[in-house]
Design a protein around this nucleic acid. Structure first.
Lengths: 163, 163
DNA sequence: GAAGAATTACTCGGATACTGCGTGTCCGAGTGTAACGGG
DNA sequence: CCCGTTACACTCGGACACGCAGTATCCGAGTAATTCTTC
């Protein structure tokens, strides 16, 4: 029950693009060098972000990736779902219907008409998690970092800017 | 980013024990037959629940497992952490310090003194998830099932009771 | 018939293989750039 | 000197191996019930 590390890479990479704030596309190699990440694998994650509509890819020479929307319009939930997929944390396989317990229910169709209570309980918790992720945007995280560590923004522009 | 299926098995098994409500220990084989689960693997999950203090194991003939606490005192968070471990969903590897971006921060020790904003944002969401799991007890799920499907309780007693 | 000891059968507990997904990598298709030649 | 063509270098895009955690299983240690023997 753990998130893939691609999520961390994706969030930091999107943050770096948000700090650059110009429309110049940045190639994978420079983004990967920004945090010493393996370029091919990061590239794979970036493709997922493109498919999810969070990034725009520019092909050809001097191409690369840029944000497809404003940082205010990209939530952490968007990033997590884009990289890790949108499957629920808890997958109900309806084992309540199986085995001797399931068979001992005389009115199976009526007893199992409503959703499994375990599934709904887990779903409530997951909804709270998603809500908390959805209400935090990339711009919020950027603002929090700017408040605590103002030197990071200029460091990103110095390290990743194409000047 | 998915929960192990052992969680579903553990919750349903604990629920069944809560429905039985007597102090007779139930062996693994009968619990597994209740939902057509592979007995050896379920046995492994039950051991994890014993280590976490949610179940009591009774060795020897006519032995088995029984709840170690009242269903009201067992939260869904307890079950999830017992089976899947208590590692955080999001693991921050501090990549912000690495690479050209990390090196470009002139005052590294000051800029990175406070926790990573990405980590704290993810931590807020995870805290909401844990809170929602912690406030739902096994007794709550049992009550919800009793309200929606009253026949399940008697079915469990009929299928798993040692009568 | 009752008490005691040995036997037996059943249970938990931990150690051991197998599989699927996350992790890491590679090469081909496509495009913009730049150089080069001709007008 | 300007324009069109050609070649090139760089980028994204998807397809291909590897390792570890989740999945599944087995056998040994320990205990309570049972049975047999003896008084």
């Amino acid at each position: 029950m753990r998130m893939t590390k691609g999520v961390e890479w994706a969030v930091h990479t999107l943050l770096n693009l948000a700090w650059l704030s110009d429309d110049e596309p940045v190639p994978t190699a420079r983004l990967a060098a920004g945090h010493d990440l393996p370029a091919p694998y990061l590239h794979k994650q970036l493709q997922a972000l493109v498919r999810a509509g969070l990034l725009e890819s520019v092909p050809g020479a001097r191409g690369g990736f840029r944000l497809a929307r404003a940082p205010e319009a990209i939530s952490l939930l968007d990033v997590v779902l884009a990289v890790d997929g949108d499957e629920p944390l808890f997958r109900c396989t309806e084992i309540r219907r199986c085995g001797s317990v399931g068979a001992a229910c005389p009115d199976g169709s009526r007893a199992f008409a409503l959703p499994c209570a375990v599934k709904t309980a887990m779903g409530r918790a997951e909804a709270a998690w998603r809500e908390a992720l959805a209400t935090q945007s990339l711009a919020d995280v950027r603002a929090e970092t700017d408040a605590h560590a103002p030197s990071v923004a200029s460091a990103v522009r110095r390290a990743l800017g194409d000047g």
